[in-house]
Design a protein around this nucleic acid. Sequence first.
DNA 1: TAAATAAACGGAGGCACCTCCGCTTTAGTG
DNA 2: CACTAAAGCGGAGGTGCCTCCGTTTATTTA
Lengths: 198, 198
Amino acid sequence: MTTEATRDAPAQKPLRADAQRNRDKLVEVAAQMFASDGVDASLEEIARRAGVGIGTLYRHFPTREHLVEVVYRREVEGLCHAAAELARLHPADVALELWMQRFVDYIATKRGLATSLRLLLTTNSTLFSDTSGRVSGAMRGLIEAAAADGKIRADVDASDVMHALGGIYSAPNTPDWRERSGRLVKLLMDGLRFGAKG
Amino acid sequence: MTTEATRDAPAQKPLRADAQRNRDKLVEVAAQMFASDGVDASLEEIARRAGVGIGTLYRHFPTREHLVEVVYRREVEGLCHAAAELARLHPADVALELWMQRFVDYIATKRGLATSLRLLLTTNSTLFSDTSGRVSGAMRGLIEAAAADGKIRADVDASDVMHALGGIYSAPNTPDWRERSGRLVKLLMDGLRFGAKG
DNA sequence: TAAATAAACGGAGGCACCTCCGCTTTAGTG
DNA sequence: CACTAAAGCGGAGGTGCCTCCGTTTATTTA
């Protein structure tokens, strides 16, 4: 793995400076647009807001799916990075709780991308294993740290918690979805804290 | 959700004569176009060849998927109808053989529609159970009739034969696909005839 | 620093999608 | 029939997709 954060293909020939700049900008703008307008956001609008021509967008991302995939991977990357960051700045149990709240946001995005992602995840089989592996790895780290510090009970593991969060996926798309999920996270944390050091 | 469904077979409010005419023409033309150009055939071209405006096409089929679904159902319908027809006109074993040849054509169409169908079949779960049930039912009828007439061996059932035909799906998309499949059908028929009345 | 070269840019142009709404046709009714 | 309401029609027009290629720019070389 190279140290490049936003590169997706391994050992790619380095892009020219302007190309890299444009590419990053495109991904950033696309992430916003997909979040606000859904995956059907206009590619021409994305190019416009990124300050590049439509041709440039297409050179970097030959299809909409390519762009969606890169945005999604970036999202996962951010989520994992946040785990490390939160662990550094907060007590282990707080870090876990904050991270789970962020996880809710991530799921919300994923829902927005749902239609495209379903296709991508069946087509591009590495995408699923990659990302779900990374996400659950991040969660495992937080949980083990919190357990080691005696901040949460030690008799649960990451897969239990992931399973418990499963409700977030299946919850209907109501406007109060966000609050519901927030409560679910709190509830789960209470359960995890209860009996700590027991 | 009881309202809008595909209105072909069910007793929906009867369409005005001209509307029904246009609708039928559209489906017919679409079937040809999808077969020759794939599912991405231009809807405007379909409308044009059907001699109607694009607006008319969209009124009848709000999305491309609607149209694909109707065409596909029609294909299945035709296949099942052919089973009855062939059974009426030919000895049971010949009917079976001819039908399986037609089945090969059907698979070819299905392959053409593959991308769209995959989506449809996961989205619209009744579509799969409906159609696959009807097709295997038709095949079962032919096989049982042929077995009853002593034209083919009696120790196989429809699911065995369907399974044996499975190779047609998995065969690569080579230009000689059609001949290959034809030979597979013949081979299978020889196997079925061998030991008839035994 | 300047010239040479490869890499990247951008947007015009052509095609397809899909909506909207004024016009036409059909199917009743007297 | 003549008339009318409802059903249906159609295509202009606004938007997005994607390709192609002449122009611009970063990087390398001298």
